[in-house]
Write a protein that binds this DNA or RNA. Structure first.
Length: 416
RNA sequence: CGGGGUAUAGUGUAACGGUAGCACGAGUCGUUUGGGACGAUUUAGUCUCGGUUCAAAUCCGAGUACCCCGACCA
């Protein structure tokens, strides 16, 4: 991608509005644009990051054995399904829309009301269980207060997965497996070390749930991390709890955190109203046991930035970025330009994602400042100096020192 | 939803009730080119509605939007 053709420009000045790092950086670097409170457009750079995250999640679920099959459910949903579970009136974040003839619909904030009757069509006997489906789709929630940029929005991409089981033991087994998958996803997204499995309230789904909380001051939750086993407890249920549920440790560290994922054991809460039953081995009809597992993609992207940045800009981790390489030509000298273009073409041929700063009306300082702000993992600089040495300068965004790499071997150096 | 704050050009900001100014950006021309370079020139603004006043960006009222705190958060 040529930077001269990039859809949105970077902004030098910090916004005057008090805000989170991720909001400020993502907006200034041209990743997102705000339409209104809690609603954002993902610009080319931001959209690419979102797709990276999406693919990491998808890859981890569609491993061998497959932990869930991908589907796409409707956003527009019938009122009746929501009345059946009492959430048409009971869920105040639900967006309701009127169609023709005053017919009413819900805009999906979550999909238990849709996936449960869907599953019913697939389940007849215990032989049909277990199975799970997931989707990556836009959710709508009329949050009373949107905040902190893309950390809390009213419209957001979410991966929601629903699992269906014949027995509690089977759900428990799958649930623990999914916890491992979640940790792999967060590790790959560069926030593994800052993310904690957190014992939390189950909301209206279940008594308890497991949250995945990433430590950051921009977060709106407070968690207590057990210093011994590193499991955490959300402040919302900490009242009266004196020791760790896991290791009985009593030494906790208090931290602010943002919830990047949440998983629930829903039991039969949704299978009962939708009459989701199966015929068991013993000939009896039983209710299906369900679990649900969510990750907010935009929020995850925001959390990555909260955890990975410095005062100059974003520092994307090595698996999440809009482009891997930021190629910068600092001179308009014809020979140097030709050399830079050659490197650009080589990178494209090698299928290495590259953003080429080919702008001729910008000074070197401006280009470097933009590169730091945008935060791609690898920076390559081409100049008279590097051209004379038949090399290219390479610098990692998370390192201070740049080094010269011979033209002949720079592809190898990048791949490493 | 309760409380607080803010609203001036694309962005960041100034202006006692009396000529809306500055910087950045953007356009044009030229000089520059390893950390947001320089000169010339052009461009563009008082959130909306109402009130007070000879006169309102400024005072008053209502509305709207955004931000922050709290409550809420499948």
């Amino acid at each position: 991608m040529l930077q001269s053709k990039l859809f949105l420009k970077t902004i030098k000045e910090k916004s005057s509005e008090a805000e989170s790092f991720s909001r400020d950086l993502l907006m200034r670097a041209g990743y997102v644009d705000q339409l209104m409170a809690g609603v954002y457009t993902f610009l080319p750079l931001g959209f690419k990051v979102l797709q990276k995250i999406e693919n990491i999640i998808r890859k981890n679920i569609e491993q061998d054995p497959v932990l869930g099959q991908e589907i796409l459910m409707p956003v527009l949903q019938p009122k009746e399904n929501w009345q059946k579970t009492g959430r048409w009136d009971g869920l105040d974040i639900l967006f309701k829309v009127k169609g023709g003839g005053d017919k009413e619909y819900a805009l999906g904030p979550t999909h238990e009301e849709i996936v449960s009757p869907l599953a019913q069509k697939n389940i007849l006997s215990y032989r049909d269980l277990p199975f799970s489906v997931f989707q990556i789709q836009t959710k709508f929630r009329d949050e009373l207060r949107a905040k902190s940029g893309i950390l809390r929005t009213r419209e957001f991409l979410m991966k929601d997965l629903y699992s269906f089981h014949a027995t509690q033991e089977d759900l428990d087994k799958y649930y623990e497996k999914m916890i491992k998958v979640y940790f792999n996803i967060f590790k790959e997204c560069g926030i593994g070390r800052m993310t904690y499995r957190t014992y939390a309230s189950g909301g209206s789904f279940s008594k308890y749930s497991d949250e995945f909380q990433t430590i950051t001051d921009a977060g709106e939750d407070t968690i207590y991390i057990c210093k011994k086993c590193k499991l955490a407890i959300n402040k919302e249920i900490k009242e009266g709890i004196k020791e760790c549920q896991n290791c009985k440790g009593a030494d906790f560290e208090e931290k602010k955190a943002v919830e990047v994922g949440n998983i629930f054991k829903m039991g039969t809460k949704y299978s009962v109203p939708f009459d989701l039953k199966f015929r068991d081995r013993d000939g009896l009809e039983k209710s299906v046991i369900m679990g649900c597992y969510g990750i907010g993609l935009g929020r995850l992207m925001g959390a990555i930035v909260e955890v990975n940045h410095d005062d100059k800009g974003i520092i994307w981790p090595k698996s999440v970025f809009p482009f891997l390489v930021h190629l910068i030509c600092v001179e308009n000298d014809k020979k140097v330009k030709t050399a830079a273009e050659k490197i650009y073409k080589t990178l494209l041929k090698e299928n290495i994602e590259v953003l080429f700063d080919d702008r001729q009306d910008k000074t070197a300082g401006e280009k470097f400042a933009d590169a730091d702000l945008i935060g791609l993992p690898i920076r390559l600089v081409v100049s008279k100096k590097t051209e004379a040495a038949k090399s290219v300068e390479m610098k990692m965004r998370n390192e201070a020192q740049a080094k010269l790499v011979p033209i002949k071997s720079f592809i190898k150096a990048i791949k490493k």
